[in-house]
Amino acid sequence: MRTERAISGPAATWLKKRNRISTVEIAFWLTTLLPFVLFPSYLSLASQIAIAALFALSVDLVLGYAGIITLGHAMFFGLGAYAAAVLAKHGWGEPLTGLLAAALIAGVAGFVTSFIIVRVQHLALIMITLGLGLLTYELANSFSSITGGTDGLSVEIWPVLGIFDFDLWGYTAYGYALAALFIGVLAARRIVNSSFGLALTGIRENSARMPAIGSVYRVHLQKIYVISASMAGVAGALLAETTGTVSLDTLSFQRSADVVVMLILGGTGRLYGGIIGAIIFLVARDRLSDLNPQYWYFWIGLLLMAIVLVMPGGVLGGLARLFQRNAK
């Protein structure tokens, strides 16, 4: 769809236009600062939403833009979390280097697995990513001397930049996670609004045609897969650092599935879809589980079905359709 519009004008101007930051975006980022002032007792939830949003963004890059359906992305999230935690366990609790280490390790894992990923499509892709995720989970479980097994690890994280200690209210945790998310979004929007990003969309829309017009589509896919893996790793490391703990759950299938649900809720291939989805999913979960700690999953299920039935393209997809209709 977007490629069609690209033809209507010179491609370069079009890309530049897409790269421009809109007022809605500025308003959105200003809103994200509100919890500091208005809801300080919700900051720890807000920090976990920001982390989930970054994770969802990383999945959006492969799923929404490149069309790689994945049900095993928690693998990179967990690898990143363990990278940061294991580093801290061995006496290096500096948060920023922890993020770097996580990005590196998750990126390497992404690079290695990308060779399999680009060779399969559709259902096989789901199977492969699912399998890789389960494999990593079991590996982490059996290497309990490093990972702490089912008990997980609890570690000491140093203050961010040597100044901001992780406090009880979550001021540091949210500020730190939000900054990381912001940088993540900036990076992601540069990527998707470049010719590389367009090539990815092309692969998603018609993977047979891309090689025909001379696009090295496997290399493109590998590249975005590695970038996405690194980003997921950073999200995992953020969770490990802001909570000072890590457990096998960071690698679980549930986490892979939840992130895809968030993305579908918000709308795929829209950068902000994952963020909106993470907000809806986690806030709903928090509110509903407060009302009924035992059976809240029932209401979550109902909410998911309602949103997907009313707005098949997710919340952002639905809104976009609404605006287009009004514009006509």
Partner: peptide, 20 residues
């Protein structure tokens, strides 16, 4: 409060929220 399982991150957040 419900943690949903062996999730230290959720447990920590819930503990923080309970306190603050």
């Amino acid at each position: 409060k419900d943690t949903g399982g062996p999730n230290p991150d959720v447990a920590k957040r819930l503990a923080q929220e309970l306190v603050v």
